[in-house]
Structure formats: structure tokens, C-alpha cells
Amino acid sequence: MNAEHELVHQAADFLKHRLPLQPEVALVLGSGLGGLAQRIGDPVVIPYSEVPGFPLSTAPGHAGQFVSGRLAGKNVLCMQGRFHYYEGHEMAAIVRPVRVFKALNCRALILTNAAGGVNWDFSVGDFMLITDHINFMGVNPLRGPNDDAIGPRFCDMTTAYDPALQQTARKTAADMGIALREGVYLGYMGPSFETPAEIRAFRTLGADAVGMSTVPEAIAAAHCGLPVLGLSLITNMAAGMAGKRLCGEEVIEIANARGPVFQQLVEQITAAV
């Protein structure tokens, strides 16, 4: 057992003794989207600082804690805030929670994020189903020695975003009367926003939205065999598209404004998973 495997199992063993329920669905809540945790019944809150091997979350709008309980009839384990590469964390630490979810026998992972719109047809406040991604972060969380107990050396990414979960999301959104865009998410290292030239290049590459998270987690989930659903809230149009400067405060403001509807959508998807 290598060092990372040991850290994953230490964290999983710790959580097993603290969680009131066996989690079925894991959720990762992105910038400004942490309010969904308030909808969890009989919540048990566990700060990341108490979990062995977990770093601290420093990103604005990220509470930095697990919330466990019941949501939409399912036992859930929710990350109220995630870890980002731009914070200075190593990739192994960023994806460690994903491997912990797998070790806890979660059967699905829902990744959410706030993203910038790259597709000209998108608008601020849209929801996007992630159908695929482009890793433009310059690093892969699977780099280094492979642990065959976690996953294969060469990980297939053809269906990194689970087709069955995507269909569940489509049906749920349609039933709720919520417009759900679909597209490719491009992961960018950050923390600086992208330049207008980069956004033009990303659009040419086929990106519909851009953000600073999610891609490492999706790769790690594919590696360990944990089905993933990805959802983005378009909180701003990317650099050079709206004729104004970008700021993090606007991202959180839009996320808070559209948060209640987004939370309802994720809750109903959770019920159907």
C-alpha cells in the first residue's frame, strides 16, 4: 500500500466512524453553490481540518466542510467547498476526496461548479450539463506511480461523464421545466481569469464553458470507477465577450442569485440517481 492509498483509507475510516449513514451519492459544491448543503436533513458537519490527510479550503465561498445526511430520499455526503490547484494544493490532495468517496462505496458523484460561458449562445445564469472536458490545467492527477488497487495505469476517458447520469439529468430538468444547456467544460489552472485571446482559442478547441476545477476530480473518478455527473452554472461570460472586466465577486453574486433554482435541480437529480 503506497502513501496515497494509506491517506485515502485513513480518511475513509475516520469518516465511517463519524457518518450517521452509509452515503449513496456524493456531491461537490462549487463557488457560491454551497447553499445546497442547507437542504440536507439531519445534517452532520465535519470540517476538513478534522479529516486525516485533508488540506484546508481557502477559496471564497467555500465553507470547507463535509455535510452528511438525507437529501431527496438519498443518503448523501456533500463537500461544501472543494480544493483547487491554484490554491497551491498538490493534485493528489485535490482528488483525494474522490477516492475517499469510492472507498466509502458511494455509487455516484455529482460535481458542480461556477463557470464562465465561452459559447456565444449561452447567457449568464444558464445551467450546463457537462458532456466532456478538455484538460488545460497543465497537469494530470494520475501522474506518478500508479496504484493498481485504485485504478489502471492508463485510464479510459471515453465516458468520463456517465451517459446514464446525463440522461437522468436531462429528464429531470425537462420535467422541472428548466432549460439545461449541454457542452464541453475546459479546465484552466487559474487563479487569473483567462485572456480574451485564450477564450477565442478555447472556443476554437470546442469549449463551451471554462473554469478552474472539476477536471481533476472527473479524471480521478474515472480512474477509480466512480460514475460522475457534471453540472455548471454559467456565472459570467468569459473574457472579451461582454465588454467588461471580470471579478470573483460577480461570480459569487450570480451564483447566489441563481443558486436556489440550481439547488432544486441538483436535489431532484439526486432523487432520481
Score class of each variant (00 low, 15 high):
3 A>N: 08
8 V>S: 00
11 A>G: 01
12 A>V: 00
12 A>E: 00
14 F>V: 02
18 R>G: 03
24 E>L: 10
25 V>E: 13
26 A>R: 02
30 G>K: 05
46 I>G: 05
47 P>C: 11
49 S>C: 05
49 S>E: 15
50 E>W: 01
65 Q>V: 08
67 V>Y: 06
72 A>N: 01
74 K>P: 11
76 V>N: 09
78 C>M: 14
80 Q>C: 15
84 H>L: 12
85 Y>G: 07
89 H>E: 09
94 I>T: 03
96 R>D: 01
96 R>P: 01
102 K>I: 00
109 L>I: 04
110 I>W: 04
114 A>E: 05
114 A>V: 01
116 G>F: 12
118 V>D: 04
124 V>P: 01
129 L>K: 06
132 D>Y: 13
133 H>R: 07
135 N>R: 09
143 R>P: 01
147 D>P: 00
152 P>S: 03
171 K>C: 03
180 L>G: 06
183 G>A: 13
193 F>T: 07
193 F>S: 09
193 F>Y: 15
195 T>P: 08
198 E>G: 11
201 A>V: 12
202 F>P: 06
203 R>H: 12
212 M>Y: 12
216 P>H: 07
233 L>D: 03
237 M>L: 15
241 M>S: 10
241 M>G: 02
247 C>Q: 14
250 E>W: 07
253 E>T: 13
254 I>F: 02
259 G>H: 12
261 V>M: 13
269 I>C: 11
271 A>D: 03
272 A>V: 03
